[in-house]
Computed example of a mutant assay.
Amino acid sequence: MRRSPLLAVVTALLSGVLVAPTAAHRADAAPTAFVHPGVTVSQGQLDFARAEVQAGAQPWKAAYDQMTASKYADLNRTPKPRATVECGSYSNPDYGCTGEREDAIAAYTDALAWYITRDARYAQKAIQIMDAWSATITSHTNSNAPLQTGWAGSSWPKAAEIIKYTYTGGWANSGRFATMLRNVYLPVVIKGSNSNGNWELTMMEAAVGISVFLEDKTSYDTAMAKFRTRTAAYVYLSSDGSLPKTVPSQNLDTRDKIVNYWQGQPTFVTGLTQETCRDFVHTGYGISSISHVAETSRIQGQDLYGTDVGERLRQALGFQSKYQRGEAVPSWLCGGSLNLGLGPVTEVGYNALHNRLGIAMTNTQALTEAQRPAGSNNLFVAWETLTHGDNPN
């Protein structure tokens, strides 16, 4: 189930991950044929989780129980779609923002519950929620509209992939749902954002997931290219040089501009993120989206974990995890004070890098195991101990 680092390197070399990419086999290019279900969680991962839950094995059974006890798995849930979802800064005003995000998570939760139990009521509830929104929503407005579109747009395709490709009871309005993703969500998220990095990373997560569901290779490639650029500009590695990489469109062309964008942090060390000195909550959003896109890409046949994306993810997880666990904060880091609260965001990256590739991740492992079962951040992360905890697939 676990591979040695040497085997991982050999495998990566044979697959072309660590060699110079060719035009036909770039590590960030759309696959020749998309794999379904294939957004963040694969058929093999679903089968593993189902078998472990049915066997009563831990931590998966506890994770499943946590999920089904949540409000998101309530079979009496009534979706609350709106034609226009209006979200201001920090979702104030909140006209449909919380409702949309939570309905999207609920649809994904029900899809997972369907797969594990084969209880058709869960599949039908997921369909009811997705149908309600696809029949209603036309736009997002106000200052947080791009981020809101990314948050909800990250959960919708995860739910839709499972239902469309595993539920045999039929989904008559799946085409209308696809049209919603194509017309309401994709045009917004594919543009990206020059705000804090977690915005664009979440938006690219949504764009990649939607592209898989729509089998849209052009959008997939566009989103992946922006994702690679933003990831490199979000997590610092010493190999980047004296200053972090930047996104060209942001015109961060002086040290002062870069330091200001990095929340006033003048010292750059491997694993630091652009939002570490803001707070760990938003940093966790960024890290989570990096792991989700990398996982989707792996399922689609192009493994980014053997590229700088994987190294940045590993270092970001380790750096943040040690302070989240209580290590003293040095005076040079964020003025000696950190706002903690990383959230349930470590399972996907930890499983990929430690369990599959055999990389030691002491702090990330300790934090991950202490936080199990990982729940939901009520925005776009949900139930990742169940789907990815020590999952060999």
Rank of each mutant, 00 (worst) to 15 (best):
L112G: 03
N76G: 15
W60G: 03
D74H: 00
A104P: 02
P31L: 00
S15L: 05
A30L: 01
G96P: 01
Y108L: 08
E100C: 13
Y72H: 09
T22R: 08
A24W: 03
R77G: 10
G38F: 02
Y108R: 02
A27C: 05
A49Q: 03
P79Q: 14
L18W: 00
Y108K: 08
V53M: 07
G96N: 11
D65T: 15
S42R: 00
E86M: 09
Q43H: 08
D65G: 10
A20W: 06
P79D: 12
A51V: 04
A51D: 12
D65R: 11
L75H: 03
G38S: 02
P81G: 13
A20K: 11
F48E: 04
D94C: 06
P59W: 10
T68K: 05
T84E: 11
A62T: 04
W60C: 02
G88S: 07
T109Q: 02
F34Q: 01
N76M: 12
A111I: 08
R77C: 11
V17C: 06
F34P: 01
L14W: 04
C97S: 01
T22A: 04
E100T: 12
V19Q: 07
A63P: 01
P81I: 07
D65A: 13
E86L: 09
Y90Q: 13
V35P: 03
D103G: 07
Q66P: 04
A62S: 09
N76D: 15
A83T: 13
A23H: 05
A113F: 11
Y95E: 15
R101D: 14
A27S: 12
G99D: 14
A111F: 06
D74W: 00
D103Y: 07
D110T: 10
P93Y: 06
T22E: 04
P93E: 06
T98R: 12
A63N: 00
D28E: 11
K61C: 07
D74Q: 02
L46G: 04
A104Q: 07
Y95I: 15
A106W: 00
D74Y: 00
D47P: 02
L75S: 01
Q43F: 12
A104W: 05
T40Q: 00
R50L: 10
D94N: 15
Y90L: 10
P21R: 01
D74A: 05
G38V: 03
C87T: 13
A113P: 07
L112E: 05
A107F: 09
Y90G: 13
T22V: 03
R101M: 12
V41Q: 01
V19M: 03
A29R: 11
A73R: 01
P79E: 13
S89K: 12
A30M: 00
P93C: 11
V53S: 05
V35L: 04
S91Q: 12
E102K: 07
G88I: 11
A55S: 15
R77A: 12
Q54E: 10
A69G: 14
P21C: 03
T78Y: 04
E102W: 12
E100D: 15
N92T: 14
T40G: 00
T40L: 00
S42Q: 01
S42T: 01
T98Y: 09
D47E: 09
V17E: 14
G96L: 08
A49I: 07
T22K: 02
F48T: 03
Q58T: 13
V35M: 05
G56I: 08
P93N: 06
D103Q: 02
V41Y: 02
V85P: 02
D47G: 08
Y90P: 03
P37C: 09
K80A: 13
D74C: 03
S70A: 06
